[in-house]
Design a protein around this nucleic acid. Structure first.
Length: 387
DNA sequence: AAACCGGGGAT
DNA sequence: ATCCCAGGTTT
């Protein structure tokens, strides 16, 4: 089953050889040079593939070498600590990937005796490794024939096949993996898979594909019918939900109040200032001008709703006595559009409630702890207002 | 099957 | 603002 002819047989094999010849020929001239292609060390391949999940090549490049110099092999990674792994992941997002990486490293050291799993079946048992990543590590790291379907190849295969169903549906996935299996039969599994991704990325682009330069144009159903712009069907994207949150950077004796998120919480393992969601309808935010006043130095403390001060006290036991607006940070992430109102609390009363997990953290420690994107922004701001 | 992931780059 | 990204896991 090749997804093009719907039949197995000599003609199917012939067609495959023709396609592969074009693919590998193109790759030898136009293939990308990327840091993780310099070596076929399965460990390095694995790290790169996890980093690249839902993340652009450009975003990964600066992280890859830095991560590898700190964690050069699976034994070093397994030793952690997890907090260090997260610190090196900071800014890449989707932090469960880093936690899974750390867990998987320990599995490899403890259950596989440090030998890297070398079959797709074994790789699939590792946390964070799905069908794509298993195929990628098997082919790039071990030179095995293995199918891959990811963003680039999904688009390429869909257009080659003229796939009209949703490529993320069960039926679409079955078609795509069927094609991937068929095309993966080769004596150059690593080059072939890299080549397929590069053609998908550089030629078979989402917008304005370069069909005139495509080595596979004469085999492509979407090209034949002119359906490049409607194949594959676009991914459904949920609407962004507006959220308003407040963050209090509480300072006392040159230290800041932070806590580490517990396992199971969002941002598990990361550290954060006191932060919680507030009701946009109940507070002062009803009046459009009010939010500006929060960060107006002259307005100061008086314009902050008492319920926010109370929110801090409930969570930490501390009563804010002197509060200044730091900045409003707006950011869009996953399915949220967040408005984060940040405050600097320079005087507190009451006692820090034990059991809430909060700790006083020095400025130096703050540099070492893993924070979220916005948490780091606040940390940087605090360093600046100190000047 | 659908939701979730609290990041970022290109346009 | 919108689309997309070398996906995987959970519900």
């Amino acid at each position: 089953m090749d997804g093009l002819e719907r039949s197995e047989g000599p003609s199917s094999h012939h067609r495959r050889r023709l396609l592969q010849k074009e693919i590998l020929g193109w790759y030898s001239k136009h293939g990308r040079r990327l840091p993780w292609r310099e070596s076929s060390d399965p460990y390095r391949v694995w790290i790169s593939e996890i980093m690249l999940q839902q993340t652009t090549v450009a975003a990964v490049v600066p992280y890859f070498e830095r991560f590898l110099s700190r964690f050069p092999d699976v034994q070093t990674l397994a030793r952690g600590p997890e907090s260090d792994v997260l610190r090196h992941w900071e800014g890449l997002g989707y932090y469960s990937r880093a936690r899974n990486l750390y867990r998987a490293a320990n599995t490899i050291v403890e259950r596989h005796g440090g030998r890297f799993p070398d079959t797709p079946e074994e790789l699939l048992t590792l946390p964070g490794v799905g069908r794509y990543t298993a195929g990628a590590v098997a082919s790039f790291g071990f030179g095995l024939q293995a199918p891959i379907v990811e963003a680039n190849t999904l688009r390429l295969y869909s257009r080659l096949m003229g796939l009209t169903v949703d490529p993320y549906s069960t039926a679409g996935q079955k078609q795509l993996w069927g094609f991937a299996e068929w095309i993966s039969v080769t004596s150059s599994p690593a080059d072939l898979n890299q080549a397929l991704m590069d053609i998908g990325s550089s030629v078979c682009r989402p917008q304005e594909p370069k069909c005139g330069e495509c080595p596979l144009a004469k085999f492509c159903r979407a090209n034949a019918s002119g359906e490049q712009s409607s194949i594959p069907i676009a991914k459904k994207r949920p609407a962004k939900t507006p959220v308003t949150e407040v963050l209090f950077a509480v300072e006392r004796d040159e230290r800041y109040l932070l806590r580490q998120y517990d396992p199971g919480e969002r941002w598990a393992g990361l550290w954060d200032f006191a932060r919680f969601q507030v009701d946009e309808n109940g507070g002062v935010l009803d009046q459009p001008a009010a939010a500006e006043l929060l960060f107006e130095p002259a307005a100061g403390y008086a314009t902050i709703p008492e319920s926010w001060i109370e929110g801090l006290r409930e969570r930490t036991g501390l009563k804010a006595r002197s509060v200044a607006g730091l900045r409003e940070i707006r950011h869009v992430v996953t399915r949220f559009q967040i408005r984060l109102l940040c405050f600097h609390v320079s005087e507190v009363g009451g006692r820090l409630r034990s059991g809430a997990g909060y700790r006083w953290v020095s400025r130096e420690e703050l540099l070492e702890l893993p924070l979220s994107k916005t948490g780091r922004q606040v940390a940087v701001l605090l360093g600046q207002i100190r000047q």
